[in-house]
Design a binder for these strands. Sequence first.
DNA 1: CGAACTGTTAACCATTTAGTGAACTGTAGC
DNA 2: GCTACAGTTCACTAAATGGTTAACAGTTCG
Lengths: 103, 103
Amino acid sequence: MVNSSFKALSHPIRRQIVERLAAGPATVGEVTGDFGVSKPAISKHLKVLEESGVVTRVIDGRNHVLSLRTETLDEATDWMVRQREIWTRLFDVVEDHLKEEQR
Amino acid sequence: MVNSSFKALSHPIRRQIVERLAAGPATVGEVTGDFGVSKPAISKHLKVLEESGVVTRVIDGRNHVLSLRTETLDEATDWMVRQREIWTRLFDVVEDHLKEEQR
DNA sequence: CGAACTGTTAACCATTTAGTGAACTGTAGC
DNA sequence: GCTACAGTTCACTAAATGGTTAACAGTTCG
């Protein structure tokens, strides 16, 4: 699932949609915003977000209401944070080593 | 730059390379590992990682030594963490609202 | 009912991506 | 000098991506 999350986030339009939805649920029309692309293009991006598990959709009359599936995004975030912890630790080791040498 | 970082991380092989490099610098041969793909394929993945600013390369004799450019990855990590903070806050608001209603 | 509205599907196109094998560049070491 | 080694570049393919317009499906409302 981490796989498809990163793929979903690899397009600027999709990231902007996620940014919008992080602030709360919205309809397709609302997330469409002012990207200079057609409705079918947005529709496809939403499909990618949905199939990757990043977004869910609830149909309400003629509106489709979109929400973030935060659990999915949490997984991807955790991967990044975990890597950061690892390379930060490494950096500290190097730092310590340099301090050691200065003495 | 956040753009290309996510794109760089959108392929499982490239993420595994990043995982390897998070633990410390390594040569091309070392990161190649046991993905079932040819050397040219790895070479291309490394090019993507390098051009996206995620990885740097220092040539030492006939070995190319790769390292993570952590600043670049920090940007992407920060984007994710920032979004998480936003949707977490939203979640708390909903939580509070539900508690409010239970009373 | 019929028109307007919200959104998707279908068919198509151009570009990018991910992979391949073969050939090449440069370094190491006998 | 020659061979082995580390890695890239080239030329090519197949599939995926991102976009388009045109047509469709369902909902709302006068």
